[in-house]
């Protein structure tokens, strides 16, 4: 039996209103399913006591919640001004080359999704790349092959 339902009940209890558990519940559902498939949204809705439409409405507002399949790994290159000024675009392009995909796509083997992202709050350590939601700072194009290698082998 899945404990997801029970976990969501526990999360609800932390807040004055059950609805506040929506983001944590969506995040958790995404961790379980890889992305927020219609079934994941339904499961989330049942646990929250909301409608699946409500869950989708909320999820689709936020960049970190995915309504379409994504790779097992997520590589996000900040291309906002501070990073762009010191070469973020070149880092992004190097990732495209190494992964053989365009930004916004997922590699054919379903391993890695690459996308540009808005400012990650690390402007002084540009270029910032978020790899599976952990920041790599001062990334230069020449650092990219090693990162890709790490993702491909480390799994």
């Amino acid at each position: 039996m899945s404990t997801y339902y029970d976990e969501v009940q526990e999360i609800k209890a932390r807040y004055p209103n059950w609805r506040s558990a929506t983001l944590p519940a969506l995040r958790l559902a995404q961790e379980h399913h890889g992305y927020l498939s219609p079934d994941a949204l339904r499961e989330c809705a049942e646990a929250l006591g909301a409608t699946p439409a409500f869950c989708e409405a909320v999820a689709s507002f936020y960049d970190m919640l995915h309504l379409a399949p994504v790779g097992r790994h997520m590589v996000e290159v900040c291309t906002n001004v501070s990073c762009a000024l010191v070469g973020a675009q070149q880092v992004l392009e190097r990732f495209e080359e190494e992964l053989g995909i365009r930004a916004g796509e997922t590699s054919g083997d379903g391993e890695v999704t690459l996308r540009p992202i808005e400012c990650l709050g690390g402007c002084g350590w540009a270029t910032v790349v978020s790899v599976d939601h952990h920041y790599r700072t001062h990334v230069k194009p020449e650092d990219v092959p090693a990162i890709v290698q790490e993702l491909r082998s480390g799994g």
Binding site: T51, P52, A53, F54, E56, A57, S60, F61
Partner: peptide, 22 residues
């Protein structure tokens, strides 16, 4: 309070929708 018709996405991509094809 039926929670069936919602807005999805944000910004210029916002649109009115129901859940999936339901």
């Amino acid at each position: 309070e039926d929670g069936q018709l919602v807005a999805v996405n944000r910004g210029a991509g916002s649109m009115i929708a129901t859940f999936g094809d339901e």
